[in-house]
Nucleic acid binder design. Structure first.
Length: 538
RNA sequence: GCGCCGGUAGCUUCAACUGGAUAGAGCGCCGGAUUUCGGCUCCGGAGGUUAUGGGUUCGACUCCUAUCCGGCGCACCA
């Protein structure tokens, strides 16, 4: 897209790019191309060479018309670039020790929308959730549930111990378990541990799935860590790595930074991740010889690789940044660099209410849950707001602001544009789903419409670039800009009657009809990707 | 100490289309218009050495390098 002031429809820097290898000046190459293009492509009305060698192209009326009719025909696929890759996107993967909190929310929505975006662009996508249902935290969690059950059944006091989960929700889980499992006896933790673990995990996954559903998120696949361990997948992977000589028996370096207190030098299996770009080699075994979390995760990723995806994407919170290199190393070792692996890190969300920042910590039990958030603001606002920043930037979420019905509130503003268009259609007793097409003689576009058309023609490029860079936040920005253009044109009608779309219930400008349809199509496609609803009346 | 992310207008807000043209929005400020086809809306103005120094090239907010500031992380946890 050329900058506004040039008044052209397309621009290309091709001659700047190609000039060097062809040993020709960008400007003269541009002039050559200009003549060639004008001769070969009849949809170009005018081409100018500008600046250091840009080609600015103005479409002919026929060119514009054919673009418009394409959009009206394709409707809900307009913007898709028909890419054809397969993706596995792992996101949320919150520990199954309680409901989701706000910290999970951003990654959850990011992952979901990224998946929608890639799907829209023609790819195959599996949305996946890795359940960390193994390890010490689960033991602590089950113990906490057990003690709450004892508290309820036998009035035993819940101890104040560091490793336990104090949150209120544990009581609810305990109550549910008591209600639904009358035949299980909770005498000692040891005797009922396995049963209780299974039930407790089910309960907390129920909570998490409920939260996800309320946010409009549905995963295709839930992958359990316990399953990995049970099926001995870790052993297989380690064998595989050993065969390739990527694993050695050795000693870890003492931890850097702080002075090592309980540092013991113990021989163990170590993955040589340094050979694949990591800062240090990583342990696969703990002191007692059992597998580390990392070892399990290597096995998990090996499983993903075996499932033949072209691309693996992990969505992580900022607190897991330090983990990326080692898992990337594992993937590249296991797949011989054939599978493309990317981690997208979502920075922190800072929550405000009336200027007061909130702190959250799952352990302490006073975190802000997704439910708390949903009580304050609706799903649509949350989804839109969480994507209103690039994922590598911290995000301030003020939940007073998203409740406003003003231009500041971007969700509202975009939804309003769509509702407004529907209102016009209703006035004309037409439906937004009616088939329309445009002919050459009805194509008489004013300056406002021209601006908006250019924006609409830009849509496929926005999708392409957002998909390529894995940056779904480009979509809310685009939709907001498009809405500004639309509203701005609309209010022009208040100042000057000749810009009104309809008057006295009748269509005034024929162009207006297809034109608002185009805007509606793009807004709808965009909001579908975002998973935000579009009311026809507000 | 090491690693990752960020630093863009007065601003505890951010964008800039895989290196492109005169760096754009919002808030706030100043000046106008409007009470409606659908609700605090619309138009215009001022405001910049893109943290800082060096480098790469036709061309850098974007890439490399050094420094400063802020956030996060640096287990045999998960």
């Amino acid at each position: 897209m050329p900058p506004d002031q040039f008044n052209f429809d397309l621009s290309s820097n091709i001659s700047l790019v190609l000039a060097k290898q062809n040993k020709i000046k960008p400007n003269s190459l541009a002039n050559l191309l200009k003549d060639l293009l004008l001769k070969k492509i009849d949809h170009f009305a005018k081409i100018e060479v500008a600046g250091p060698g840009f080609l600015n192209i103005k479409l002919s009326k026929e060119g514009i018309l054919s673009n418009i009719n394409d959009i009206l025909r394709n409707k809900e696929t307009y913007g898709s670039n028909k890419s054809n890759q397969s993706y596995n996107i792992e996101f949320v993967s919150a520990n199954p020790t309680g409901p989701m909190h706000v910290g999970h929310c951003r990654g959850a929505i990011f992952g979901d929308v990224l998946s929608n975006l890639l799907l829209f662009n023609g790819n195959k996508v599996t949305k996946e959730y890795y359940i960390n249902d193994y390890g010490n935290q689960i033991k602590d969690f089950v113990e906490s549930v057990f003690l709450r059950i004892r508290e309820i059944q036998f009035k035993e006091k819940f101890p104040n111990k560091d490793n336990l989960y104090p949150g209120e929700y544990i009581k609810e889980i305990a109550l549910n378990i008591i209600k639904n499992n009358k035949n299980v006896k909770f005498e000692s933790l040891e005797t009922c541990f396995e049963d209780l673990k299974k039930i407790s995990l089910e309960e907390s996954m129920k909570l998490i799935k409920y939260d996800l559903q309320k946010l409009g998120i549905k995963h295709d696949n839930f992958f359990s860590e316990t399953k990995l361990v049970k099926e001995d997948l870790v052993n297989n992977v380690v064998k595989k790595l050993k065969n390739k000589n990527f694993v050695e028996e050795g000693f870890l370096d003492p931890p850097k930074g702080e002075s090592p207190k309980n540092w013991k030098k113990i021989k163990r299996l170590i993955f040589k991740s340094k050979d694949f770009g990591d800062d240090a080699n990583r342990a696969l075994q703990k002191n007692d010889g059992s597998w580390t979390y990392f070892a399990n995760d290597v096995a998990y990723h090996s499983d993903k690789i075996n499932r033949k995806f072209d691309n693996l994407i992990n969505i992580l919170g900022a607190d897991h940044t330090g983990y990326i290199k080692r898992i990337a190393a594992a993937v590249s070792a296991l797949s011989n660099n054939k599978v493309k692996f990317t981690c997208k890190v979502c920075q922190l969300v800072k929550l405000y209410k009336k200027g007061e920042p909130f702190k959250m910590s799952k352990r302490s039990g006073d975190f802000i849950s997704v439910q708390d958030l949903l009580n304050e603001v609706n799903k649509d606002s949350i989804r839109f707001m969480m994507l209103s920043r690039s994922n590598d930037v911290e995000l301030d979420f003020d939940f007073e602001k998203v409740k406003e019905k003003t231009k500041d509130n971007q969700v509202y503003y975009v939804q309003y544009a769509y509702a407004r268009i529907n209102s016009i259609m209703r006035t004309l007793k037409l439906s937004i789903n009616d088939k329309i097409s445009v002919s050459l003689n009805s194509l008489n576009i004013n300056e406002y419409e021209e601006k908006i058309l250019r924006k609409i023609f830009e849509w496929p490029k926005i999708i392409d670039s957002a998909a390529y860079k894995l940056e779904p936040h480009k979509i809310p920005f685009y939709l907001y800009e498009l809405s500004i253009l639309f509203h701005s044109y609309w209010s022009r009608g208040n100042e000057d009657h000749k810009f009104k779309f309809i008057e006295n219930g009748k269509l005034k400008r024929k162009e207006a009809l297809f034109f608002i349809n185009l805007v509606a199509i793009v807004i709808k496609n965009g909001m579908n990707i975002l998973g935000v609803s579009l009311p026809e009346k507000m």
